[in-house]
Nucleic acid binder design. Structure first.
Lengths: 229, 229
DNA sequence: CTAAAAATATGACATTTATCAGTTCTTGTT
DNA sequence: AACAAGAACTGATAAATGTCATATTTTTAG
């Protein structure tokens, strides 16, 4: 299970692919692999991070506590993504907390391995920069969605997002199962409102459910809803 | 008025300060200075940018058109900030449009000058990365505000933001005057709602107005409002 | 397996916000 | 100065969303 970064396929999805053989070797020698159970934190808002987490398996929610006591989920990070880099790069405490929403396997990479390369290998730095540019664009999109779309549209969009990014299981349910509360924290609404809209979608035949699990039944109509019909 | 980047103070506020003398010389030789009048665009959403804009004076709104036809302002960029770097780095069309909200003076820097340095000067790349990390954090904060705060709170916050970032004039009005529509596009609400809340703030003595101009009268109460009292 | 706890669900109602229609005020232009 | 055009404003009303109370189902711990 402990494996070498040099041979890790996951790396292809993130900025580590721009590292040289020697750099990767160093990373690999310094990294530790951790198992994190669903519900357990990787870190809390305000923590000083001594490194970054490279996700090998599972999904983590990145969220921020707002003044009114609700958690806003800002991003779901999955296989191949690196968590905590923003904080390491800016040399600040994290502005987000990270909690596993499914069982996870992650590699913890001490920040020295990263910062060394950031100073010496422009290819790597640029690759990190490109990833962050992408994240920033996505964040802009989220801002627009939050402010301009209705809760109904945002929930529909969330389901489509979950399908596209995490797929479905054999029975046609979304592979990543989130609690109703997590769903409401993704779209930024009250849990009761989210539940009500889920019920409505079910009645209208857009989705089907079984316990927590949700399956998409009429993707086309969900898409129409998101686009405003 | 045409001046050399090497001597430009503005540079201290952005990533260009990490450039070497020679790099700056190249930038300076290739840059062009432009004057943009209030209301005029720097670029439109979807444009391919051949370079970035370094703001010497004035303020630009960066906004994105949403499906329902409303513009969401995602950021206000001012003196010292570089606009368009995300798009140049990701080698994509812009996801945002940029329009001057006050008369501006900007330097246009062709992308070659930037990308060359990105590949060769890790100090510069890292500096750009740090700035983008900062922007990303701010974007996260905006997401949380948008989804968890009321329109009233967001407007109060916007006024405080305008005061802190752009200051006040001699008569105590916010130095950056935005139209009511721009204000509503910053906080993500209907223009009428924004106007109504501004009237309410005026009645309650939190602000005073004169035409478009708005002045903060009771900062303390505005802060309390934002924090939820 | 069962009791307790937690999550999901639903109803009633209050509050917030958007929409539409129309008026008044500003501003720029001739 | 007069006017047109756009911006700011207000009221009435509808729609969306949040809150609180409570019932039901699911999950967890022992």
């Amino acid at each position: 299970m402990e494996s070498r970064c040099e041979n890790c396929i996951i790396r292809q999805f993130n900025a580590l692919r721009a590292m040289s053989k020697e750099e990767l070797k160093k990373v690999s020698d310094s990294k530790t692999t951790k198992t994190i159970k669903k519900g357990e934190p990787l870190f809390d808002e305000g923590d000083k991070l001594n490194g970054v987490f490279c996700v090998r398996n599972g999904v983590s929610k990145l969220s921020k506590l707002s003044a009114n006591g609700k958690d806003q989920i800002v991003k779901l990070a999955t296989k191949g993504e690196v968590i905590g880099q923003r904080s390491v790069i800016a040399e600040e405490s994290t502005n987000l907390s990270a909690v596993a929403v499914s069982d996870m396997e992650v590699c913890f990479i001490p920040k020295e391995s990263i910062t060394n390369s950031l100073h010496k290998n422009p290819d790597f730095t640029l690759e990190v920069l490109r990833h962050m540019a992408h994240d920033l664009k996505e964040a802009d999109d989220v801002i627009v969605n939050m402010s301009q779309k209705t809760v109904k549209q945002r929930i529909a969009e969330a389901f489509l997002y979950l399908k596209n990014n995490f797929g479905e299981d054999e029975q046609g349910f979304l592979a990543l199962t989130l609690s109703r509360e997590d769903i409401s924290n993704v779209v930024g609404t009250a849990t009761e409102s989210a539940i009500r809209i889920i019920s409505e979608f079910k009645k209208k035949g857009l989705i089907h459910t079984s316990g927590k699990k949700i399956g998409i039944k009429n993707e086309r109509k969900l898409v129409e809803l998101v686009e405003g019909f």
